[in-house]
């Protein structure tokens, strides 16, 4: 079933045509946090477009995601400066530590992992950003500690 919030979005666009596709997808994502399969199919029905077409358009843009985000989103910068300072290794370490790929959420729903082109703080390279908090000059051996500190924080909050 489509979430109530996503249904409300569609109600806001009663006679929409295909040129409203991207605004609708943006609003659905804002409401649900991501684009679910059901949402893509329903948006397709609403606009009389096939699911493959909606999926095609949505995958063209980096702004859309297709998985339910975790409680905490980790962004790994893969910009030029971070790359030179070893961000590929940082990304690999995080993937291993969490057993997920970029664009996925851990099974416990805690972390999701995103790769971003450049966060814009090249002086701090390599940099990762977890829920808006920046971690500068990260080393692969620090990753476990950083992630553990968030795990601890979340379990205390719960």
């Amino acid at each position: 079933m489509l979430s109530t919030k996503a249904q409300d979005v569609l109600k806001k666009f009663p006679d929409a045509k295909r040129d409203s596709l991207i605004p609708i997808l943006q609003e659905v994502q804002e409401a649900d946090g991501y684009l679910s399969k059901q949402a893509i199919i329903e948006v397709g029905r609403h606009l009389k477009l096939s699911a493959s077409k909606i999926y095609g358009v949505a995958t063209f843009y980096n702004q859309f995601r297709f998985y339910k985000p975790g409680k905490l989103t980790i962004q790994v910068c893969r910009g030029t400066a971070c790359h030179v300072k070893g961000s590929a290794k940082i990304l690999d370490t995080i993937k291993q530590e969490l057993s997920i790929d970029a664009g996925q959420t851990t099974k416990d729903g805690l972390f999701s992992l995103e790769v971003v082109a450049c966060i814009g703080v090249c002086g701090l390279a390599p940099v990762i950003c977890i829920e808006g908090e920046f971690h500068a000059n990260v080393l692969p051996e620090n990753i476990k500690n950083i992630l553990d500190s968030y795990r601890k924080k979340v379990s205390q909050d719960d």
Binding site: L49, S50, S52, K53, Y55, G56, F60, Y61
Partner: peptide, 8 residues
């Protein structure tokens, strides 16, 4: 329309 371009 079972298929379309995906990705970029």
């Amino acid at each position: 329309s079972a298929i379309d371009f995906t990705g970029r």
